[in-house]
Amino acid sequence: MLLIKEISYLEAWKKDMQQGRNLSIPTLSSKAAGLEQRLNAGVKTVISAQSSTTKFDQECDLVTQVYAQAALIYLAVVVSGNSHLLPEIRSSVAKALVAIKALPAHLLIRVSWAYCVAGCMADEAEKEEFRKILFSADRAGYKAGTMWNALDIMEEFWMLREHLNVVQFSDKCAWALAMDSLGTKILLI
């Protein structure tokens, strides 16, 4: 969560620099690289510790992995924009999807933000997988709460993405663009 906060600071810094017309791409890249290294190191630590923990700890680690992959996606979007085709985004979306599918259905509501961030960057083949996760949990009787809002945001962004000029040249993250388009602000926690 602290790294997600730092990424949001990086996003704000980038916007300030752009407005002042003095954004240094090498500085942005350097700051982002440090955050990415810390996120990847954390993921490796969580994965290596998983085999020797309790079921509760394993579930917590899965939630952590989902958030870490979403944070990597967020970082890539801040640095490079809303293209779901970037290799680092493709990799993180795939890893987030695996971790989300591995989560017990009762924990899905705990990853609404991460589900939304990863889902916005889903490619055509992954979109249905993101939908199935939520529909399966709903059919099984689990309360999905803000997950429905997340899916609405994802669906809106996927529609917006078809109009690349709107998305590609925006300085806002995918989920913010979708919320603006829907005329709403949703806290996905």
Rank of each mutant, 00 (worst) to 15 (best):
R110Q: 08
P87W: 03
S29H: 14
T27I: 13
G119N: 07
A94D: 14
K143I: 13
A125L: 13
A105T: 09
V93Y: 00
H84V: 15
M17S: 11
S136W: 13
D16W: 02
Q37Y: 10
K15Y: 01
K55Q: 11
V93R: 00
G145A: 08
S83A: 14
V77G: 03
I133K: 06
A137C: 14
W113C: 01
R90G: 03
A76I: 05
V66M: 04
L108P: 03
A70H: 03
G34A: 13
L108M: 09
S48K: 04
D61L: 05
C60F: 02
H106G: 02
T45V: 04
A12R: 09
A96K: 01
G34I: 08
V93N: 01
Q65G: 01
V63Y: 06
A118M: 04
T27D: 10
L75F: 00
K95C: 07
A12N: 02
D138F: 10
H84P: 08
Q18F: 03
A68R: 10
L10W: 05
S30Q: 15
N40C: 06
A114V: 03
W148L: 10
G145Y: 10
R90C: 07
M147Q: 12
E88S: 06
L10S: 00
Q50E: 13
S80K: 14
V43W: 01
T146H: 08
M147A: 09
L35P: 00
L108I: 10
C116Y: 06
V98A: 11
A41N: 11
M147E: 06
K101C: 05
K127S: 12
R38T: 15
Q58P: 01
S92T: 01
K132A: 12
L108T: 04
L134A: 10
D57E: 14
F130M: 07
S24E: 07
T27H: 09
H84E: 15
A114Y: 01
T64H: 08
F130I: 05
A99N: 09
E59L: 09
S51G: 00
L85M: 13
A105Q: 12
V93S: 02
S80Q: 12
E124D: 15
H84L: 13
A32R: 09
Q18S: 12
Q37T: 12
A96G: 08
I89A: 00
C120L: 06
G145T: 00
K31A: 11
Y115V: 03
V117C: 00
L35Q: 03
Q58C: 03
T54F: 00
W13V: 02
A70G: 06
A114P: 00
A114N: 03
D61Y: 09
Y115D: 00
D61I: 04
L103M: 06
K55L: 11
C120E: 07
K31T: 05
A32W: 04
A105P: 12
T146K: 09
V77R: 07
H84A: 15
G34V: 06
V66S: 05
K14L: 01
K132S: 14
L103V: 03
I25A: 07
I47D: 02
A32I: 05
L86E: 08
E59I: 14
A118S: 11
R21F: 13
G145P: 02
I47E: 08
